[in-house]
Design a protein around this nucleic acid. Sequence first.
DNA 1: ACAAAAGTGTTGTTGATACACCCATGG
DNA 2: CCATGGGTGTATCAACAACACTTTTGT
Lengths: 208, 208
Amino acid sequence: MFNDNYPVVDDWVVTGHHIFKSETLDEAADRIFSEISGFNDVYKIQFRTYGNPSRIQSDKDLLWVRSRGGNPRTMTVAYYFLIPMDRFELKQNTLKWFSIKSLPKLGFDHRQLIEDAYSDLQQKVMVEPVIFDLLREKFTLNELQVAFELVLNIKIDNRNFRKKALSKSYIVPLEEKRLGVSKKPAKLYMFSKDVYDKLSGEGYIINI
Amino acid sequence: MFNDNYPVVDDWVVTGHHIFKSETLDEAADRIFSEISGFNDVYKIQFRTYGNPSRIQSDKDLLWVRSRGGNPRTMTVAYYFLIPMDRFELKQNTLKWFSIKSLPKLGFDHRQLIEDAYSDLQQKVMVEPVIFDLLREKFTLNELQVAFELVLNIKIDNRNFRKKALSKSYIVPLEEKRLGVSKKPAKLYMFSKDVYDKLSGEGYIINI
DNA sequence: ACAAAAGTGTTGTTGATACACCCATGG
DNA sequence: CCATGGGTGTATCAACAACACTTTTGT
């Protein structure tokens, strides 16, 4: 998110930018994310496009758009990126992290945008193995559990969760342990996409 | 889908149109669908936006776009609509239905678009109660089963399916029966969104 | 009376939930 | 030695999978 420090406009907004003529949408998203984070090959999901004529409502926002030579009818093709928190570092000091639980006032329709992204992620997490993109390559089972708990905003029983995780062949145990972080070193695991892909298409859980 | 009968261009394409200046994206989608079908309040899902500079590749397609004064860099905000087959009637004779299983050669990137729509639907069907939008308001359990089988392209055991469906409080039995279609009249049910919404948020099935 | 789709039960197995204490290490 | 997060087992219950025949009607 950035705050442009434009005189009258000081709302926080989600970072975005124009799409270049020769670029694909994915390339534009990657470029913008790279400018923010320095990272290039991060897993991303295009979840929705916003383009209502009235989405720039407040006078402030209109002023801002005009001041930059923009058209008040703006189409935004919105993506979110999944990245482990510890890897992340903001590259510009006009940018700032906010927890989804304590968002500031946001400009344009960006609060809606964030809510849409979040619920899209919550849905995907239950159906696809995207949770692993929020973790480092090697992770502990507790890190995996915490990831689910934070994304879905639920509490999970530790023993039951471990049983389930250990029963999945695509969560493969390593010989390594994570040292230094906690008192007792924790066993590390990694996600095998190969194994997952081989298995997928087997268990359709129809949630009528 | 329509075939414009433009001299050199005879590929089938998914129907689309420009978005008017004063329209929201949803309104544009509804308008276009209404022109095709005559129906106005149909459940729809915006699943993806296409806008790669190279998405119009073939000379044929480029010709077609230029002939209509269009810009070859076209953004398509794509929606799919869910409607019971029996309600549907095409309003223009340039339009034609194709089964997802036997699509013709398609112009632009529309085959990709249809595949994306289909897999989005397959995913949503397992997580949200969108299946009911493919059925009439009153439906039989076998119709419900067939809907799942067709969408997911699987076979489901009839006895097990019924047990599961009957256990859901939001699938409410009616006193009516469907006559005339099959030999033995089948009991009708309806979906109660109210009951569903009250229950939702209870059973998180994390499919790690 | 027969063709066609609707409807029905049981069993074995697997997965989900609930629940409380010991373990290994760093400081 | 103690504080901290890592790690473990059992019993109950609910859901799933496999499986084949009877019922009701229209023709």
